[in-house]
């Protein structure tokens, strides 16, 4: 870990301005992913801006009946919030399926969205990785890729996004609120926050340098049966092989987002039109452009079977 200077920011605007005004600065909130990566010098900030003092740790109801989740709301608190449990069950479930009790106590809403891939080739700094070292190549392609993405991949990167929470938020049509260094704010639909790898997998989100997430807004509840099903080898404390976030209405319509299959939460609105036809039809559309490897081709039937189970339970 390289030396860094450290400050505690007093306001979101000040934090964003400090980030833009300081070379190689990073925000730190929970720190559970950033410090992990700093120890390996995969992340090498020269300056850390601690944002934990910013009053962004509340969950408030919005005027249109939704919820505004402060960027610093811890995963534990978000999952346990009575309104989230009641109206956004898929989000509670996704959060509780992630990491461990200790990590959820520290990890924040914004940090969870921005966590980086757990690709083992990204983590081993001796090996090529376009995400870690642009232009060096992708060692996962042709390597051990059982955990990797099957859809939306590129020749430069087949990493997955590791978040469970983000998959549920994608299904909920969440909107990410930010403040930029110049003090202006904007709202980014979560569908536009995360990027596919393309030929620049090192750029993972649409955030600008210094831009700080301040909140995530959930639209008013959509009801329906909500489920988050995470499939993994180990029963707990493991990343998803495949996960399914689903909201299914009585009339058979609904929403589906997948985790563990792409560089971002994977949702194809057009596929949802096929919901009344069953899981096979939906996943056929979700994976229309899939390019699995030999190691991870199982994810296609697995996702279909998992979705089928989720739909069956939702309709029961």
């Amino acid at each position: 870990m390289r030396s860094f200077s450290y400050e505690r920011a007093a306001s979101p605007g000040a934090a964003a301005a400090a980030a833009a005004g300081t070379a190689n600065a990073k925000f730190i909130a929970g720190g559970t992913n950033l410090l992990d990566l700093m120890k390996l010098e995969i992340e090498t900030p020269a300056h850390l801006i601690d944002v934990n003092d910013l009053a962004l740790d509340r969950i408030e109801e919005t005027a249109d009946g939704g919820l505004r989740i402060g960027a610093l709301v811890r995963n534990t608190d978000l999952a346990a919030d009575i309104r989230v449990r009641r109206d956004y069950g898929v989000l509670s479930r996704a959060l509780l399926a992630g990491a461990s009790g200790q990590l959820r106590n520290k990890a924040t809403t914004a940090g969870n969205l921005l966590q980086r891939t757990r690709c083992p080739y990204f983590y081993d700094t001796n090996l090529p990785c376009n995400k870690r070292k642009p232009g060096s190549g992708c060692a996962a392609i042709g390597g051990f890729s059982r955990q990797h993405a099957v859809v939306g991949v590129s020749d430069a990167c087949i990493a997955t996004h590791p978040s469970d929470m983000a998959v549920a938020m994608r299904a909920l049509d969440a909107v990410v609120e930010t403040v930029r260094p110049d003090g202006t704010t904007r709202s980014i639909p979560i569908a536009e926050l995360h990027r596919l790898p393309g030929d620049s997998p090192e750029i993972e989100t649409s955030l600008e340098p210094g831009e700080l997430i301040t909140a995530v807004v959930l639209p008013k509840p959509v009801g329906g049966a909500q489920a988050y099903r995470k499939v993994r080898d180990r029963a707990s404390y493991a990343f998803a092989l495949v996960s399914v976030a689903a909201i299914v209405q009585r009339d058979g319509t609904g929403r589906v987002a997948l985790g563990g299959v792409a560089h971002k939460p994977w949702r194809v609105e057009a596929a949802e039109a096929k919901l009344p036809d069953g899981a096979k039809a939906v996943t056929a559309r979700l994976f229309a452009d899939a390019k699995p490897t030999k190691d991870n081709a199982y994810k296609l039937p697995l996702a279909e079977r998992t979705l089928a189970a989720v739909l069956r339970e939702a309709r029961a």
């Binding site: 030396s3 200077s5 450290y6 400050e7 300081t22 020269a46």
Partner: peptide, 18 residues
């Protein structure tokens, strides 16, 4: 402590103490 907002970064790698 705390260091000022525009705290010197550490190009030499010298530890920043706080």
């Amino acid at each position: 402590t705390p260091p000022p907002a525009a705290a010197q970064s550490a190009p030499t790698g010298a530890p920043v103490m706080t």
